[in-house]
């Protein structure tokens, strides 16, 4: 059994020092890896993420993160990434990584992802250049996610780590008007095309925790203001159960 700890939307900034650290005390006894689902800062400043990085440094389990929209705000996302990596947190964007947990190969593919909406109500890359750029960004990141996940096919377990939501199910509680800014079905489709065991995301602070992709892959929204804990833990059997949708995934 593999134990995945996950949290997103910590939004570290001035005065955040010590918010997470006490809650991490027993983390190494309770989980095999820690996944961070983006929005680790308020303004995207390296100084903000430094405070979090100092609290994470030395946590003796593998730590893997994606960035969120807040982490891009002041255009210093490359520095934010470096600060995290210097503290031992692997940051993914359109990439994958594999961690060995007692002989079980756990692979994680990560992207920030982006918005657009959901089936029947998704924006299209049509019309103004701004609209094409918006939807085009989601398409590009979803394609990269699919390729990254497909490249991890040899692993025993595969997890997709996102910031934006791939489904509406974990947005319940949010206002419908902002769904297109909260996620896109293109990410769910990418995951369903190649298969995964679990999808994690944040961003929807007022959403709900549990949902499934159209092909039945479990999705968990781990936005901290929603889960109201330092992290949540999900356990997975050490062998793949969810097949790609094309091969008859569960519903």
């Amino acid at each position: 059994m593999i134990r995945i700890a996950a949290v997103g939307d910590l939004h570290y900034g001035e005065g955040s020092q010590g918010i997470l650290k006490p809650g991490l005390e027993h983390l190494p006894d309770r989980a095999d890896l820690l996944l961070l689902a983006g929005d680790l800062t308020r303004w995207g400043k390296p100084e903000e993420v430094q405070v979090l990085a100092d609290e994470l440094r030395g946590v003796p389990i593998p730590m893997i993160a994606v960035l969120g929209n807040h982490d891009y705000h002041c255009g210093r996302e490359a520095e934010v990434r470096r600060v995290l990596e210097a503290a031992g947190v692997r940051v993914l964007e359109g990439e994958g990584t594999t961690v060995d947990v007692d002989g079980v190969r756990v692979a994680i593919a990560g992207t920030k992802g982006f918005g657009g909406g959901f089936r029947g109500a998704h924006g299209s890359d049509f019309g103004e250049p701004e609209m094409k750029a918006f939807v085009g960004h989601t398409k590009m990141l979803s394609d990269r996610l699919e390729k990254a996940l497909a490249g991890l096919n040899a692993a025993d377990l595969r997890i997709a780590l996102l910031h934006y939501s791939p489904i509406e199910g974990t947005l319940e509680g949010e206002r419908l008007e902002i769904y297109p800014f909260l996620g896109s079905y293109l990410m769910a489709e990418a995951v369903d095309n190649v298969g995964a065991d679990l999808v994690l995301h944040g961003h929807a602070h007022h959403g709900s925790e549990k949902g499934r992709t159209p092909a039945g892959i479990p999705v968990r929204n781990v936005a901290q203001p929603l889960i109201r804990h330092a992290y949540n833990v999900y356990t997975l059997n050490g062998h793949r159960e969810v097949l790609p949708a094309a091969a008859g995934g569960i519903t």
Binding site: R3, I19, L20, P22, G23, E25, H26, L27, R30, D197, L198, P218, R220, Q224, P225, I227, R228, H229, A230, Y231, N232, V233, Y234, T235, L236, N237, E241, V242
Partner: peptide, 14 residues
């Protein structure tokens, strides 16, 4: 102010 205490139980997903 949102609490950041440790979670109670793990959820078995599979």
């Amino acid at each position: 102010v949102v609490p950041t205490t440790e979670p109670e139980d793990a959820e078995p997903v599979s």
